[in-house]
Nucleic acid binder design. Structure first.
Lengths: 223, 223
DNA sequence: TTGATTGATATTGTATACAATACTCACCTG
DNA sequence: CAGGTGAGTATTGTATACAATATCAATCAA
């Protein structure tokens, strides 16, 4: 697993840097579901002591981004039921974010959203799936940040990231990527035109499709 | 600031016990807004080392329940804007919880909800405000747990608890307590009768009133 | 008196040491 | 050969030691 390429500096708290590093790795799929995260190994690799690593892992776990096993933390492998629970929360939070985005987003922000979309399109057929997954993660970050309630943004990011194990499965298929890009395009246009209803509709269609895919996911995991 | 009466045992992880202990203290208002939480003092009082205390405080802070200052953590004193942001999230999550509660709550759960309401009523005129605040906190815990999506419950609890500094201000006034109990009564009845629309309506009225009170809060804090 | 300076202190951030626990796997026994 | 048993090991949980930094107070100069 290639990962954690970021540099550790002394000026910022180590635990915060490590937290961001690992969270980025989770977003971009650099870590495989089921993989274990061991304090000493990470500490060694990053050239720090166990303490800040430990605290970062702890926070990630309490954010629901890592699972606790009898011995340490690992990448979560959620049941479909758990994924559905997360999806339900996304259904509550994200429509409101889009509504507010339509009202509040500056033209500058919209521009960067469109740019993120282009980036995503660029990699839709990339041989290296991680390219697309990274662009996809970035698009979602930009999208959720369009709302001026920072807490709401942070909360939505969390549940969005908790999806990752399922999302990566979906984005490995071309169909999944097309769904993502198509939906994102609709949402972008709606926000650009300041049409909240259209944005919300596109999002809900996306989430409905995602929920359908959950069935196939269950079967594929069961096999 | 009487607090942290709970007993620390060895069988469970210390940091988890400490987390719960402090979080309970926050819920019941045993800690005053602006009060500092110092690692060594807490560790000494609880008879443990700094490490687990440190980790518990860290998690509380990342949950948004404690504020970071230049030196350690303190009870947050939110601006009205920050409180409004939290209120917005509650408006998104809690109606859905009530809807699901109307469908999913067992008669046993409803019974315990009614009991929690009675407890709250009992202390509405108590000289010791903390009695009422404790009962109020308990009622809300029971209410939010009626929904069968544990993640949603946990998330809602978090934003509910992040309200505490404002809520305690409101519940010190008899008017605030009457509002709380009156609303809770309506919600209870609606859930008992399995009427989601009525439950949501009562909740929304409550939250509207709370938002109005925010104005007065701003003035009282400014003075 | 007021403001700056500096030394002491309080407190956190990180590293390390030690204790406890859960897992692994080889070995033994039936 | 199956299954249990125990020693060894990997890994976390907690305590403590040390380093860095921000705060506070006292002192002194203007």
């Amino acid at each position: 697993m290639t990962r954690s390429k970021g540099v550790i500096v002394q000026s910022e708290r180590l635990r915060d840097q490590i937290y961001k590093l690992i969270r980025d790795d989770l977003r971009t799929g650099a870590l495989a579901p089921g993989e274990r995260l061991v304090e000493v190994s990470l500490a060694k690799k990053l050239g720090v002591s166990r303490t800040p690593v430990r605290e970062a892992l702890f926070q990630l776990a309490s954010d629901g981004l890592l699972a606790e096993s009898s011995r340490g933390y690992m990448l979560p492998v959620h049941t479909t039921e758990e994924i559905r629970d997360r999806l339900e929360i996304r259904r509550l939070l994200e429509p409101e974010i889009l509504r507010r985005a339509c009202e509040e987003a500056s033209s500058r922000q919209i521009k960067s959203l469109l740019k993120a979309l282009e980036e995503e399109k660029k990699y839709i057929d990339a041989a290296d799936a991680s390219k697309f997954i990274g662009a996809n993660a970035n698009f979602r970050l930009v999208l959720l940040s369009l709302c001026k309630n920072p807490l709401l943004t942070r909360c939505a990011e969390l549940y969005d990231d908790q999806f990752q194990c399922f999302r990566i499965w979906g984005l490995n298929e071309p169909r999944g990527r097309e769904l993502a890009v198509g939906s994102h395009e609709k949402i972008c246009n709606a926000i650009k035109d300041r049409k909240p209803a259209a944005a919300v509709k596109a999002l809900q269609q996306l989430l409905d499709r995602v929920e359908q895919m959950l069935e196939q996911y269950r079967d594929s995991v069961a096999s």
